[in-house]
Amino acid sequence: MRFTPHVTVATIVEDQGRFLLVEELADGREVLNQPAGHLEADESLTQAALRETLEETGWEVELTAVTGIYLYTAPSNGITYQRVCFAARPIRHCDELPLDDGIIGPRWLTRAELAEQPQRWRSELVMRCIDDYLAGSRHSLSLIR
């Protein structure tokens, strides 16, 4: 069987110590995640990050950096995901936009508020990406070609 990891993007959006997260339904559970999703055909990684953030939160953002590239194998399905995580700043909220199916809504939480509810993380990458961002992990967007 051929190993085919799924390419995904995620966006860390921080504003005054709070992080933009998505409350969503996954496998019948209400979970928290960064705005994130799969790369689509004929789309760049940066386009995917902007699209997913808008579709899942209603926020237009400006990407500012790459915070990291992660491999994660989900215990629930055994699928390996390659996540390219971006940092971004919020530009404007488009509250008239309908959000993707399965999305409950955007939530702004501090790291401490998120740390209080690890059972609600979609995966361990939720906190790892925030911690890498807070540790100063910022790589130029020119890394993405």
Rank of each mutant, 00 (worst) to 15 (best):
A49F: 01
Q119P: 03
D42K: 10
S76F: 14
P5K: 11
T57V: 07
V9Q: 01
L54M: 11
R83N: 10
Q34F: 09
T110A: 07
V61Q: 02
A36V: 06
L25I: 14
L141S: 05
R107A: 12
T80D: 08
I12W: 05
V9Y: 01
M1Y: 15
R120L: 14
L39E: 02
S76L: 08
T67Y: 07
T4Y: 12
R83H: 09
T67D: 06
Y133L: 00
T46S: 13
D131Q: 13
T57A: 06
E113F: 08
L71N: 13
P35L: 00
T46C: 08
A88I: 01
E124S: 08
R120N: 09
L50H: 00
R145C: 10
E14V: 06
Y70S: 03
R111S: 09
E43I: 05
V61F: 04
G58M: 08
G102C: 08
P75V: 13
L114C: 12
C85F: 06
H93E: 13
R89W: 06
I130C: 02
L97C: 08
C129D: 10
L71V: 09
G68R: 00
E116S: 15
S142W: 07
L25H: 14
D100E: 15
A36R: 04
E62C: 00
L125H: 09
E43C: 06
T8V: 13
E14R: 10
C94Q: 14
I91K: 12
G102V: 08
D131I: 04
T53D: 06
L71K: 10
R83I: 11
I130L: 12
I130K: 06
G102N: 09
T11Q: 05
E55T: 04
L125Q: 09
V13L: 03
L71F: 04
S140Q: 12
E43R: 01
H38W: 03
D27L: 11
L141N: 06
G28V: 09
A48D: 02
A10H: 01
